[in-house]
Amino acid sequence: MKILIDILHPADINFFKNAINVLNKRGVDSTIIMRPRGKMIEILKSELPNMQFTPVGKYYTSTSGKLFGIATRNLNLILFLRKNNFDLCTSYGFFVGIASRFYRTPSVIFADDYEYKSTFYLSKFCGDYFVIPSCILATGKNILKYKGFKELAYLHPNYFKPDRKVLEQYGIAPNNYVFIREVSRASLNYKNMQPMDLPEVIRSLNYSGLDVVLSLEDKTRADSLKDKCIILEEPVDDIFSLMHFALFTISSGDSMARESCLVGTPTIYTGGRDMVINKELIERGCMFKVDNKQQLNTAIENIIENDIKKETMAIIERAIKHEWMDTTEVILDILTAVANKDEAILGKYKSG
């Protein structure tokens, strides 16, 4: 079996990496293409050191640039597929769904961002199979559903084991620091996001006796903050252990907000997006969506005073044990079933 895997975002590396390793052990020929963005090449080399990858396309920040990038990347991908014969194409995005149609190659598209309507429905239309979490109510003949979150492809206990050693590197102690993630507004997802007043937030947390570990997508802000907190340099060794041992996380990025919750750390989400995929974590009391300074301060006080960290760890442990699926197993199940035309396996995931 020969599979093409298209990597569009750094988060896609985590999503597919365990499945890629298993496929390789099974003797499957996996080819990785990627769209360069930020330090994605470095992250790929770190997470999948034994894999080769081919850059296809370019990442643009402006709206017009993004539209141009979509058009040119699709053309490049069509030409790439023409030179290579694949049994199956997969991605966390619509590109391979479009290009593979020219050669009648089956495509499996994964998604979870229902609110990003244009990409969601384009992926649904283009993919032969469209795989989403069961909390998303979309239906269709090509839709497959699973219980849980995409992040459990790498944060399920089958793969993630928190390691205290990472704390020594930064001179911090468990539950005595706050992890903060601030994303760039260059992404269309966050174009309307109001940035946090980071200096004030960090100063307030320091005053409460808490250290701050900061992950910044926009590194131009680093110089003004470097004396007030620990600023991470990507790729970070064992970033999820840093989240796990934090007292809580403040994140404007929705993926990292969910990641923090799923490793047992309560999260204050400041990204401003109302997302179906986040709703379950909010309802369970693991994630707190805030839209202004007052709500942020209230959420911080609540987490500290009511030991929400302990509650979150218990809630997540129960859900993973009894409700949510190992998403890597879902990926492997579906890819293998599509390649082998195994309708019995695919039937387990049919949305009806």
Score class of each variant (00 low, 15 high):
residue 57 G to V: 01
residue 84 N to S: 12
residue 295 Q to A: 14
residue 138 A to N: 15
residue 109 I to G: 05
residue 45 K to Q: 08
residue 75 L to G: 00
residue 135 C to Y: 10
residue 153 A to Y: 02
residue 184 S to M: 03
residue 327 T to R: 00
residue 203 R to E: 15
residue 85 N to M: 14
residue 301 E to M: 05
residue 169 Q to Y: 12
residue 141 K to W: 07
residue 319 A to M: 09
residue 296 L to V: 06
residue 294 Q to E: 15
residue 64 S to R: 11
residue 129 Y to P: 05
residue 60 Y to C: 12
residue 265 T to G: 11
residue 149 F to L: 14
residue 142 N to M: 02
residue 77 L to G: 02
residue 106 P to W: 04
residue 190 Y to T: 08
residue 8 L to C: 12
residue 241 S to Y: 07
residue 327 T to F: 00
residue 303 I to N: 02
residue 246 A to W: 02
residue 80 F to G: 02
residue 258 R to N: 03
residue 126 C to K: 08
residue 80 F to R: 02
residue 11 A to H: 09
residue 205 L to D: 00
residue 233 E to T: 12
residue 215 S to W: 04
residue 22 V to R: 12
residue 288 F to Q: 05
residue 83 K to V: 00
residue 10 P to R: 01
residue 3 I to E: 10
residue 261 C to G: 08
residue 219 K to L: 11
residue 105 T to I: 10
residue 140 G to P: 06
residue 10 P to G: 02
residue 194 Q to V: 10
residue 258 R to T: 05
residue 34 M to F: 15
residue 330 V to W: 08
residue 233 E to N: 11
residue 191 K to E: 11
residue 285 G to W: 01
residue 4 L to R: 10
residue 305 E to G: 00
residue 4 L to P: 09
residue 235 P to K: 06
residue 175 N to D: 14
residue 147 K to D: 13
residue 159 Y to D: 02
residue 257 A to Y: 04
residue 189 N to E: 14
residue 343 E to Y: 09
residue 16 F to M: 07
residue 351 S to I: 06
residue 289 K to A: 15
residue 289 K to L: 11
residue 106 P to L: 05
residue 45 K to H: 09
residue 165 K to I: 08
residue 181 R to S: 04
residue 135 C to T: 14
residue 173 A to M: 14
residue 291 D to M: 15
residue 119 T to I: 15
residue 302 N to Q: 14
residue 114 Y to L: 13
residue 171 G to S: 08
residue 56 V to C: 07
residue 163 D to H: 00
residue 252 S to G: 15
residue 351 S to Y: 05
residue 149 F to M: 15
residue 191 K to P: 00
residue 122 L to Y: 02
residue 146 Y to I: 03
residue 60 Y to P: 05
residue 276 V to H: 11
residue 104 R to H: 12
residue 240 F to T: 04
residue 314 A to F: 04
residue 302 N to A: 13
residue 150 K to W: 10
residue 302 N to E: 15
residue 315 I to K: 15
residue 108 V to P: 07
residue 188 L to P: 04
residue 168 E to Y: 07
residue 221 R to F: 05
residue 135 C to P: 00
residue 229 C to W: 09
residue 21 N to G: 03
residue 221 R to N: 08
residue 134 S to R: 12
residue 17 K to A: 13
residue 116 Y to Q: 10
residue 339 A to W: 07
residue 98 I to V: 11
residue 136 I to C: 06
residue 170 Y to K: 02
residue 23 L to T: 10
residue 211 D to E: 15
residue 102 F to G: 08
residue 285 G to S: 11
residue 177 Y to T: 00
residue 157 P to K: 10
residue 263 V to L: 05
residue 221 R to S: 05
residue 156 H to C: 09
residue 95 F to M: 06
residue 31 T to F: 10
residue 235 P to H: 03
residue 83 K to L: 03
residue 308 I to R: 15
residue 55 P to R: 04
residue 339 A to Q: 13
residue 76 N to V: 04
residue 107 S to V: 12
residue 24 N to Y: 08
residue 59 Y to K: 11
residue 173 A to N: 09
residue 151 E to Q: 12
residue 305 E to R: 13
residue 135 C to L: 11
residue 142 N to G: 03
residue 234 E to R: 13
residue 163 D to E: 03
residue 79 L to H: 11
residue 55 P to F: 10
residue 282 I to H: 09
residue 340 N to Q: 15
residue 69 G to V: 01
residue 301 E to V: 02
residue 325 M to F: 02
residue 143 I to W: 01
